[in-house]
Every structure is written in C-alpha cells, then in structure tokens.
Design a protein around this nucleic acid. Structure first.
Lengths: 193, 193
DNA sequence: TCAAATTTAGAACAATTGTTCTAAAATCAA
DNA sequence: TTGATTTTAGAACAATTGTTCTAAATTTGA
C-alpha cells in the first residue's frame, strides 16, 4: 500500500479510537512511523484527510446501493443482509457519524456530499418500501406522509445509533449488530403483514 | 448577575453558535469583556465550564420530570406540552447534544451524569406509557419488550433530533418545534387507540 | 474607616498545533 | 548510468491555547 493510503488508514483508526478532538497530524504521522513533513506532503491540510475518508464512506455506500438496485430486496433475509452491511459501514467510519454535525460545519464539502447521500438514500428507501409492499411483506395502505416519517426514523437510526450506543450500552461487534438490527426492524414492525 | 453566571451564559451562547471546536476560554472572555485571568479565576479549567452547563441542563430536566410527577400526563394536549418543554431544553443546550459523545469521553463526570439521566427518563417514560394506557389513549396490549423499544426510539429522537435537523433541514424556532413534535408523536401513532 | 478578602486585568509561560522549508534519500525513466 | 522526479525526514516558524502569576482595584465586614 502506498503512503497516501496508509495515512488514511492510520488516521481512520486513530480518529475512531481517540476521537477527532485529540488526534493531530503529528499523532497520525508518529503512529505510522513517518515524519510530519511527509504526511503534509501527501495531505496539505488536515481537512483533506477527513474529506478523503468521507469520500471513501460515500463510495462504499454507493456500492451497497448499487448492489441493492441490481438485486432488489424482497425477503426479510435480504433486508437483514442490507442492514448488516450498512451497519458495518457505519462502524468502520464511526468517527464521522459521531462528529457529523461538527465535521459538516467545519468542512463544507462534507455537508454538500451528505445532502447528495440523503437524496440517494431517500430514493433507495422508497424503492425498498415499494418492493416489500409488492411482495406482501409490507402493508400496502401506508400513506406517503407516513412513509416519509418512517424514512426520517430510519435516517435517525442509521446516522446516530452508533452515538446513542456509545452513550449508553457501548456494545461492540456482533452484540452491537444484533441490537442495531432489532432497532431498525422495530420501526417496520407495525407495518408488517 | 455575577461574573460566574455571566461566564456560563456567554460560554453557552458561543458554544451553541460556533461549536465547541472553535470556542476557547479567551474567546469567551473577550466576548463578555473580561480578562482571561478573570475567567480562569472563576473556572480553573475549561471542563469546569462545560460541566457546570451540563449541570444546568440536568437540573432543568429534573424540574420538568418533577412537574410531570406531580401533575401526570393524561391527555394528548399535556403530552404536547411535555414535548414542547423538553424540546426547549434541548435547543437551549444544543451544543451538548451535538457533541454528546465527544463530551462524555472527554469529561467522565458527564458520562456518569448522563447514565443517571437515562434511568430517570426510563422510569418517567414507562410511567407515561402506563398513564396513557390507563386513560385509554394508548393500547393496553403492548409487551414490555416492545415498550422498551419505544423508549429506545424516544431516547434517540430526544438526544439526536437536533443533530439530524442540523445536517438536513436546519429548521429553527417554531418550525423546528412543529417537526420535532410530529416526529416524536409518529412513534406513538401505531399504538394509539 | 480601614484592614482583610475577593475580584480583576493583563503580562507571561510552556506546550501544542498546523504547516512550511530545505536538504537528503529513494525511485524512475531514458 | 545518469539526470530528473518523487518521496521523505526533520528542523523551524508562527499562531494559538490553557493556564499561571503578580499586582492592582474593588468589595466586604466589623
């Protein structure tokens, strides 16, 4: 792996572990055994590192969305699989979700990229709902305003479940995934057939 | 108002407006026209300021809970009133909710105080549910595991709605309150009679 | 009123941070 | 091989930050 990617890797690990507050470019450099000068040769500004990591996140998310579009979700098992893979993504880029608001106000391009992500997800979710309704998993008498509220709830869980978990139970790995899955599904429960 | 309280007031305003990342003790001092030395005479460390503000938050919340305990919620209108006053509290201490995880890991006493807040809220919510069920507003066939999930959803909304709003619509004032109210109530909708 | 306690201003300090600069080392391309 | 390009190390810089220190001003209380 080249230095640029190694920097991103080291930065991600440190941001996730120590939090963006205490991690500096010097920390990242010393953690991976290179000089600060070298780090700033590859990333002139600290924001550039975070911006690149956010780019990785959106790229991975795009991949998931694309996979769904090709092979659309029709059963509960497939829904589980989707939930699992999106949770994995959130966990991988924990620090972004934990500091989302701060990052968005600090780095404008992140706010813009998030807006695009949102509209992509909105389409994806309404697609998902329609699919599940069409296959009889879901009730068909759900109004569009209600569907909108469900989407809002799903967004809230996707974006902030990891923060809530950090404040309360601090579950990790499989245990965390199980509860996350349950929490996401509990939104659907009242509307299942 | 004495200097100590004025510092807290100025700090709260700045943290809410600029975010904890860019606000320093010097900023707070110059914003209110006192010297840095004076500020640190009243609050030796920056954490002490944030800790005091968090104390204000929990104290205000305790007040709300106490009011409810005395005059318990039985109608939808009273539920609205409760939602409104808790939203007001969240909005007043925005920065805490926006940086909750970071603050909790930075200042251990905040994490501890939050744990206590959580258990207080859990009791309060189950009380609320039972009241509403008893008064026929709510269905009575809701299992305790389901109730637990509802509580989790309510916590997620209470603690992170303001963050989600910041990332997306950035609603303010009355408009924000209206949507918040709607989002909280939409959790109850499937279980109303 | 006057001495003691409290509050305040502002200089000063040490540590840290993001970033730049320079020169050396490594890699590449012909 | 050799000359150019890229990568790297590490010193250096300027700005900032939290905090401390000292002395002056203000308030308090008897």
């Amino acid at each position: 792996m080249n230095t640029k990617d190694r920097i991103l890797q080291a930065a991600l690990a440190l941001y996730n572990q120590e939090g963006i507050r205490s991690v500096t470019t010097r920390h990242i450099a010393t953690a991976m055994g290179i000089s600060p000068g070298n780090l700033h040769y590859h990333f002139k500004h600290t924001e550039d590192i975070i911006q690149a990591l956010f780019g990785q996140l959106t790229a991975s998310y795009d991949q998931i969305v694309q996979d769904i579009a090709q092979h659309s979700i029709q059963t509960i098992e497939e829904l589980h699989q989707y939930i699992d893979s999106s949770f994995h993504l959130i966990e991988t880029y924990r620090f972004i979700f934990i500091n989302f608001v701060e990052l968005a106000s600090w780095i404008p391009s992140i706010r813009e990229a998030y807006q695009q992500l949102i509209s992509k997800r909105e389409k994806e979710f309404s697609h998902l709902f329609n699919n599940l309704a069409h296959n009889g998993v879901f009730r068909t008498d759900i109004s569009s305003t209600l569907q909108n509220r469900l989407v809002r709830q799903l967004f809230l869980i996707s974006d902030f479940w990891i923060s809530a978990n950090e404040l309360t139970d601090q579950l990790r790995g499989e245990e965390a995934l199980a509860v996350y899955r349950e929490d996401v599904l509990s939104i659907f429960v009242p509307y299942l057939n």
